[in-house]
Computed example of a mutant assay.
Amino acid sequence: MSGERAARATERRLESQRRTAAEEVDRILAITLGLIERSAPAMPSVSEIVAAAGISNQTLYRTFGNKDELILAVLERGVLRVADTTRGRMAEVDDPSEQILAWVRAVLRQVSVVDAAETSRSVLGYLHQTGAVEGANQAELLAPISALLLEPVAALGGDAVDAACISDLVLGAMRRHLWTKTVPTRAEVDHVGAFVLRGLGAGSAR
């Protein structure tokens, strides 16, 4: 039987290993994203990724399973960063209507930065080709962004279904611009925001 001190020592050792593993995963993801940004619209090969990261194919596959899982992890990391940025923009205002407008602007802004949009097209195009992102899986990946609507929509008397409808509408517009390589105008963004608020009975955008 192990004693209490031995158990604590084991936990410290495991925690150190988890921290090291997390740092290595972060490093591989950052390197992969950098390669994608430089090679877009083409995708970097596994050999390019392992060479840049200074690891073996075995290490890569032991960490992520396969290339699809690695690219999905890159996409998930990007979605979380967009969610964090959007949450910050929404926190700058108190009125729920303005928070929803901030959400709309932040989401549509993702296709307004040309280089970022090209990177997103490369990642999503690859994942669509491999079948790694389909249907409900897309909604699950974007859930951290969509979930930000729940609170302000509820404050205006709406519910989760209303929030889902808004998310589908705005994310759909974002995808349309992404695949057609167009950029939403300020007038379009304002119109979408006003349309959403009218649907919630909250009047038009200010």
Rank of each mutant, 00 (worst) to 15 (best):
A91P: 09
Y126W: 04
E37Y: 07
G158E: 01
N137K: 01
I55K: 07
T119K: 14
S97Q: 12
A51Q: 14
A205C: 11
V123E: 01
H191R: 13
R105M: 03
A22C: 06
V192M: 14
R19G: 00
G34L: 07
E4Q: 13
P44R: 02
A53L: 08
T10V: 10
T182M: 05
Q58M: 12
A73N: 08
L200E: 06
L101H: 09
V114W: 09
L75T: 05
S47Q: 15
N137L: 04
I28D: 10
A6L: 10
G65C: 02
T20G: 01
K67M: 02
G135A: 13
V46W: 02
S112Y: 00
L124Q: 10
S39I: 11
A155V: 02
L169M: 10
P41I: 03
K67F: 06
E15I: 00
H177Y: 08
I28T: 14
T185S: 15
I55M: 09
V114P: 10
Y61V: 02
A139K: 01
R105D: 13
P184D: 05
E24F: 13
D115K: 10
S47E: 15
H128D: 11
S16Q: 14
D190R: 13
L108P: 04
A21N: 12
V170N: 00
A187D: 15
I28A: 07
K67P: 02
T86H: 01
L148V: 01
E188A: 12
R121Q: 10
I166T: 03
E23D: 14
T180M: 08
E23C: 06
T86W: 02
A51M: 07
N57W: 06
A83E: 06
V46C: 06
F64V: 06
L156Y: 03
A147F: 04
D84K: 10
A173D: 05
A21H: 13
G131H: 04
P96R: 05
A143K: 11
D190I: 09
E76K: 14
V79G: 04
A147Y: 07
S16T: 12
V50Q: 10
D84E: 15
A91D: 15
M90E: 07
A194Y: 09
E48P: 03
E37M: 13
V170D: 00
E134H: 10
H128G: 13
